[in-house]
């Protein structure tokens, strides 16, 4: 099977999170991901898309922002890439909560970095590239790792 690619452009608004999850759920079912894999992909993309919309565009004062969602599937894996022109941000350089942070009482713990941590842990591979003034957040789910439920 050759790589099949689909690109959809979204406006940078939190309203698009739900349609994106619906599309990824449908795609996950089509390629035979299990429920845990599909949910993990939705969660990871949701967290990073939220950061792109909130921090990459809104807080940077960029209105009318847009981003692309590229879905690529082949016989081995499903890859989803968010491509945006917002403020550069590399989630891989972001400080993740430490074990100590995660074991603190809720009312005392620092809350930053949770979304990025969840995104990175919910897919098989997470990558980030910055090229030609675009952030590219890449999420990969491998079919060979499929856990039968």
């Amino acid at each position: 099977m050759e790589t099949q690619t689909q690109t959809i452009t979204y406006t940078a608004s939190l309203d698009v999170l739900e349609p994106i999850r619906e599309l990824l759920t449908q795609t996950g079912q089509e390629v035979g991901l299990n429920k845990k894999q599909t949910y993990g992909l939705c969660l990871a993309v949701d967290e990073i898309a939220t950061n792109v919309i909130r921090h990459g565009y809104d807080e940077a004062g960029i209105t009318d922002g847009k981003f692309d969602l590229i879905i690529e599937k082949n016989e081995n894996q499903l890859a989803v890439t968010i491509v945006d022109e917002g403020r550069p941000f590399n989630p891989l350089e972001h400080n993740l909560p430490t074990e100590e942070d995660l074991s603190m009482p809720l009312e005392e713990r620092p809350i930053g970095g949770l979304g990025v941590m969840m995104a990175r842990q919910s897919v098989d591979e997470f990558n980030y590239e910055f090229s030609e003034n675009h952030n590219k957040n890449i999420f990969i789910v491998k079919f060979s790792n499929e856990i039968k439920e």
Binding site: E47, L106, E107, R109, G115
Partner: peptide, 19 residues
Amino acid sequence: FMASAGLRMIVFAKQKLGP
């Protein structure tokens, strides 16, 4: 479905209602 925004609200509840 629950994203980290939901977790933040659980923290908010804990802070608002008391530990």
